[in-house]
């Protein structure tokens, strides 16, 4: 049976837990920062330890292979330069056409590279922490991308690091547009607990006709994500609630399970 001191201990710990849970959000954020910053020295130590094998491998790489890599990179660089020149010409043409049609000019994306330093230890969230914070100008709700497509948005910001809530987490819903003739619009939602590359596209109209392979991009609605960021492609679709609306599974371009570096998009 429980002794009196057991009840006292349970009461004391419950009180402590309730105290933390009832704190205002701003205080909780500061406390999280204070406790979380205890891990920062370990985090940088871990990053150094992870870098060490790569550095060692660099030291023992044969000269011939390095020269081959340089030659390959030079060729790639030449190709990219030509592509950049083409893109710049097309961009100029696009701006001129926009001016002629009096459309609003598109602002170029300002992006900053960040390293993923930690993942959520709990299995019921899909968040990561990156090494860019408010000191680097990061604010809440900024879009986060990979080189393949959209990854998520900034959920919480501290001076030196931020928390990114990834697509597939219930707290990250994205208004999405399908690149089909009807330009159907839906909301990308959580799916695929075990598969990080799947998400659900919900709230599509009941008459939407989707084909596997159609591209899904951000719609620009909602004000968080700018229009046109690639999200993924349609895998399959089904009618829900007796044909009232349509749902589809989306294969995400970004592999959220193996994220190491992401781009934060500034407005």
């Amino acid at each position: 049976m429980f002794k009196q001191k057991h009840f006292l201990a349970l009461g004391a710990v419950t009180l402590v837990a309730l105290l933390f849970l009832s704190l205002p959000q701003r205080v909780t954020a500061r406390l999280k920062l204070a406790v979380g910053s205890l891990f920062l020295p370990l985090s940088s130590l871990g990053a150094t330890a992870q870098q060490l094998p790569a550095d060692l491998a660099d030291d023992v790489l044969p000269r011939r292979e390095l020269l081959q890599q340089i030659s390959r990179l030079q060729q790639e660089n030449q190709q990219l330069k030509v592509q950049a020149l083409q893109a710049a010409t097309m961009g100029l043409e696009n701006e001129q056409l926009r001016d002629q049609l009096r459309w609003q000019r598109q602002t170029p994306w300002k992006i900053k590279l960040a390293n993923v330093v930690m993942r959520d230890p709990a299995n019921w969230w899909r968040t990561v922490q990156i090494d860019l914070g408010s000191d680097s100008g990061v604010t809440e709700n900024l879009p986060v991308l990979t080189s393949d497509g959209l990854a998520g948005r900034i959920a919480a910001v501290w001076p030196t690091h931020s928390q990114v809530v990834l697509i597939g987490d219930p707290n990250c819903r994205v208004s999405a547009l399908i690149n089909n003739p009807a330009h159907d619009i839906g909301v990308v939602n959580a799916d695929g607990i075990l598969d990080n590359t799947l998400a659900d596209l919900t709230y599509l109209s009941g008459t939407a006709v989707l084909k596997p392979g159609e591209e899904v991009v951000t719609s620009g609605l909602g004000g968080v994500f700018p229009k046109g960021i690639p999200i993924g492609r349609i895998l399959d679709s089904r009618q829900v609630e007796f044909g009232l609306y349509t749902e589809a599974r989306v294969k995400l371009w970004a592999n959220l399970g193996t994220l190491e570096q992401v781009w934060v998009m500034f407005r």
Partner: peptide, 16 residues
């Protein structure tokens, strides 16, 4: 507290 500070959990929810 350690667990919740690195997670999206509300701070203190894992204590109890």
């Amino acid at each position: 507290l350690f667990f919740d500070s690195l997670s999206a959990n509300p701070l203190g929810i894992t204590i109890l």
